Simulated assay, not measured.
Amino acid sequence: MQRLKLFLPLLVFIVLAGFLWRGLALDPAAMPSALLDKPMPVFALPTLENGAEKVTESVFHGSVTLLNVWATWCISCRVEHPYLVKLAEQGVRIIGLNYKDDTAEAKKWLETLHNPYSFSIIDADGRMGLDLGVFGAPETYVVDKLGVIRYKHVGVVDERVWREKLQPLMQSLGN
Rank of each mutant, 00 (worst) to 15 (best):
Q2K: 10
L4F: 12
L4R: 13
K5P: 05
L8M: 14
P9C: 12
P9N: 11
F13A: 14
I14E: 03
V15G: 02
V15N: 03
A17H: 07
F19I: 14
L20F: 15
W21V: 10
R22D: 12
R22F: 11
R22H: 10
R22C: 06
G23L: 01
L24F: 13
L26M: 11
D27V: 06
D27K: 02
P28N: 00
A29H: 10
A30V: 12
S33Q: 02
S33V: 09
A34P: 10
L35E: 06
L36V: 14
D37M: 09
K38D: 07
K38E: 15
P39L: 07
M40C: 05
P41A: 10
F43W: 10
P46A: 14
T47A: 03
L48V: 08
G51I: 06
K54N: 11
K54Q: 12
V55H: 13
T56D: 08
E57D: 10
V59Q: 06
F60N: 00
S63I: 11
V64T: 03
L66N: 12
L67Q: 09
L67H: 02
N68D: 06
T72C: 01
C74E: 08
S76M: 07
V79Y: 13
E80M: 02
P82E: 10
V85M: 09
L87A: 06
E89T: 11
V92D: 11
R93L: 08
G96K: 01
L97K: 02
N98Y: 00
Y99E: 01
Y99N: 04
T103F: 09
A104D: 07
A104Q: 14
A106L: 00
K108G: 04
K108S: 15
K108V: 06
K108I: 07
K108C: 07
K108Y: 07
N115T: 00
S118W: 05
S120W: 04
S120T: 08
I121G: 03
I121T: 04
I122L: 12
I122Y: 08
D123Y: 01
R127L: 14
G129S: 13
G129P: 06
L132Q: 08
L132V: 08
L132R: 02
L132F: 04
G133K: 05
G133V: 03
F135A: 15
F135N: 13
T140E: 00
Y141L: 05
V142Y: 01
V143M: 13
D144L: 12
D144A: 12
L146C: 09
L146W: 15
V148H: 15
V148Q: 13
I149C: 08
I149D: 01
K152Y: 04
H153E: 13
H153W: 10
V157M: 00
E159W: 04
R160E: 12
R160Y: 11
W162G: 00
R163I: 11
K165V: 01
L166F: 05
L166M: 02
L169T: 09
L173G: 01
N175Q: 15
